[in-house]
Design a protein around this nucleic acid. Sequence first.
DNA 1: CGTATTACTTAATCCAGTTCATTTTTTGTG
DNA 2: CACAAAAAATGAACTGGATTAAGTAATACG
Lengths: 195, 195
Amino acid sequence: MNPSDKLLDNIGRYVNLSEVETEKLLSIVQETRVKRRQFIDQPGYTSLYRNYVLRGAFRSFFIDNNGKEHTVQIAVEDWFVSDFYSYITQTPATLYVEALEDSIILQMRYEDIEPLCREIHNLSEYFRVTTERAFAFSRKRALSNLSKSAEERYLELIERYPNIALRVPQKIIASYLGMSPEFLSKIRKNLTNNS
Amino acid sequence: MNPSDKLLDNIGRYVNLSEVETEKLLSIVQETRVKRRQFIDQPGYTSLYRNYVLRGAFRSFFIDNNGKEHTVQIAVEDWFVSDFYSYITQTPATLYVEALEDSIILQMRYEDIEPLCREIHNLSEYFRVTTERAFAFSRKRALSNLSKSAEERYLELIERYPNIALRVPQKIIASYLGMSPEFLSKIRKNLTNNS
DNA sequence: CGTATTACTTAATCCAGTTCATTTTTTGTG
DNA sequence: CACAAAAAATGAACTGGATTAAGTAATACG
């Protein structure tokens, strides 16, 4: 099985590309190996690629004015990851995107994707539909978090993505959930005591 | 000037529709007048339309388990507004979308838009590009809020959207900024005293 | 292996923002 | 224009979660 097949499977869930279209797409897809702790985006450098995670795990984060890290996204297999704002506007990034494990990604350049979307209607549709969905789900998640306590957010995470909770260091989970690592530690202690 | 021209202008910033394509699009656009306090989406009912605000103002909000209102979006002229999750997934809404003023909107049915996007490449491109941008900007905003205090968030809002701050009741602004109305009142008092 | 670094825990203190209860101001509508 | 109803302001008491500082456990890597 070719590495790109996973990406094509994913696309096939939404649209059907012809053979020619598939060929054209594959010609702009580049497989890249990334070592743990390596950055694929970082502040100051424009994000050039849409990155599809074939194997491994990433997180995107930024460092605020007080020097505090905020984890924005945790991405495992079959997710796209990048500093999306930087990618879409083609302006310098403000986020780091860091490999949490040795990983393999498929990279597609902005400069290659944009003309291809203008050329291939189905590819445009693929990104239209998946971005609309990603946006809708992201909003949904943000909303459901508004009315949740720190403990509820943690419980929801380990229920929905148990593997993430296992693979990713606790302090990164805390930063992703918007709480201090100390407080997450307290929550976990309470949970094990009362159950 | 036809009411739909504003929408076509907006589209024209991203793609060029042919005459025939424009005609097809206009044939699915419906102009609707909405009275102040009227809901165009509400929990339990699937969101059927993408709504483009021609004149007036809307907000979308939900009521959490503790009965507290959370304003999700404030939309004025040239914005799209709906329960986007409900619209995209075509499942019952969880949000209210309410007119804050007597308003005029352009409505396009999900059932009409989807086939038309599959038919008209440029329309697909319009929604792909604008949704990608909306998503990117929404993330950017969410991030910049993470490291901001309540006062900083308020200051940013009145700087970026001064007209919104004037047109929309303070308690809705507070709910949009994620703080209690009492606290916003306190912030405003401090600001006028110290300047 | 050993040890240096990084991750996790615990507990005390602190603070931004909430909640609740009351008063004052503004607004919409007959 | 009146006046009821909604919105805004004020102040006091409270709290979820942060911060700080220390100690303990786990990992990486020479």
